[in-house]
C-alpha cells in the first residue's frame, strides 16, 4: 500500500525540530525511517506531519565520555557496526546489529530511531535496558536523561514528551567481569525474533554474581525477568521452575509467528542457551 497523506518539514537544527514538534501533537520525527515508513505504507500510522531530522549535523557522532560510550541518535546501524570505538569498547553491539534486518536497511536505519520507536520485538530497546543505558532527550526546557529501564512504558509507548527529541544514547562501559550475552530465535536471519534475550552477567571467577535478563519480542515492551534471574543465580537452569517463574512475572503476548505459550517456552530455553554461551 501507499502511505497516507502528511506534510513534511525538513529541520535544519534541533531547536527548529523541537519547536515544530511542540506545536503539533500529531507530528512524528523521521530519522532513517526504516520502521516508520513500513508502518506508514501499511497505514498503521497516520501522522499529520513528518519532521525530518536526518539532515541535522553532528547528531551521528560516536564518542567516549567518561565511563560511557555515547552514540548519537542519527548514527546508522552500519555506522555503529563499522566504528572502531564500538568494536573496541562494546563489541557485543556489533554482533547484535548483525541480527537487525539486512544491510540495505542497516545503511539507513538509525540507532536513536530504533530506541525511540520502542518496537517490543526490536533488539536495541532490550539491549539499552539490559545495559542500563542513559537516554538523552532534548526539549523546550533543555536536556534531560532518562534511564532506559524507565523509558519504555508500554506498546510503542515511551517517556518522550511531545516537545522532546531523542538525541543520544549513553552506554556505561562494561567492566572486565561484566558480559552482555544475547541470543534469539527467528524464522529467517534478519527477521524479527520470535523471542530474544539480552543477559547482562557479572562474574566472580566463574560464578554468576549478578544477572539481568531482558527479553524482546515477548510482550508489550522490553520485559525484565528479575525474579527469574535470581533463581538462575541460586539454582542454575531448571526448565520447569524457570518457566513457571517467567510466566508469573512477564505477560507474554503471542503474535502471528508464535503463541504466548510458544514464547514462554522459547524464553525459558533461551536462558539455557545463554548459560551455555557463558561456559564457552
Amino acid at each position: 500500500m501507499k502511505a497516507p497523506d502528511f506534510s513534511y518539514f525538513e529541520a535544519q537544527n534541533i531547536e527548529d525540530a523541537i519547536k515544530y514538534k511542540s506545536e503539533d501533537d500529531e507530528a512524528v520525527i523521521l530519522a532513517g525511517g526504516q520502521s516508520l515508513l513500513p508502518a506508514l505504507n501499511m497505514r498503521l500510522s497516520s501522522p499529520s506531519c513528518l519532521i525530518d531530522i536526518s539532515k541535522i549535523n553532528n547528531l551521528n557522532e560516536i564518542k567516549i565520555e567518561g565511563d560511557f560510550i555515547n552514540i548519537g541518535a542519527l548514527a546508522t546501524h552500519s555506522d555503529v557496526m563499522n566504528n572502531d570505538l564500538v568494536h573496541e569498547k562494546l563489541p557485543c553491539l556489533v554482533d547484535i546489529l548483525k541480527m537487525v534486518a539486512h544491510a540495505a536497511i542497516r545503511n539507513k536505519g538509525t540507532h536513536g530511531g530504533s530506541i525511540a520507536y520502542g518496537d517490543p520485538a526490536a533488539e536495541l530497546p532490550a539491549f539499552a535496558v539490559a545495559m542500563n543505558a542513559e537516554i538523552v532527550l532534548s526539549g523546550l526546557s533543555g536536556q534531560r536523561i532518562v534511564n532506559a529501564k524507565d523509558f519504555y512504558l508500554g506498546l510503542f509507548e515511551t517517556d518522550l514528551k511531545s516537545d522532546e527529541i531523542l538525541i543520544a544514547i549513553r552506554y556505561p562501559l562494561l567492566d572486565v567481569n561484566q558480559h552482555l550475552i544475547f541470543d534469539e530465535v527467528c524464522r529467517r536471519h534478519g527477521d524479527y525474533a520470535m523471542a530474544g534475550l539480552m543477559a547482562k552477567v557479572e562474574l566472580d571467577q566463574s560464578k554468576i554474581n549478578n544477572l539481568d535478563l531482558v527479553y524482546f519480542a515477548t510482550g508489550d515492551k522490553p520485559n525484565v525477568g528479575q525474579n527469574t534471574a535470581k533463581l538462575v543465580i541460586d539454582d542454575g537452569y531448571d526448565y520447569e521452575k524457570l518457566k513457571k517463574s517467567l510466566a508469573s512475572e512477564i505477560d507474554f503476548a503471542g503474535d502471528l509467528n508464535s503463541s504466548s505459550e510458544m514464547k514462554l517456552h522459547l524464553a525459558t530455553i533461551l536462558i539455557n542457551k545463554i548459560l551455555n554461551k557463558l561456559e564457552r
Partner: peptide, 8 residues
C-alpha cells in the same frame, strides 16, 4: 544500498 520503498 538502500530500499527505495523506505525512503521518501
Amino acid at each position: 544500498a538502500v530500499r527505495s520503498c523506505l525512503v521518501l
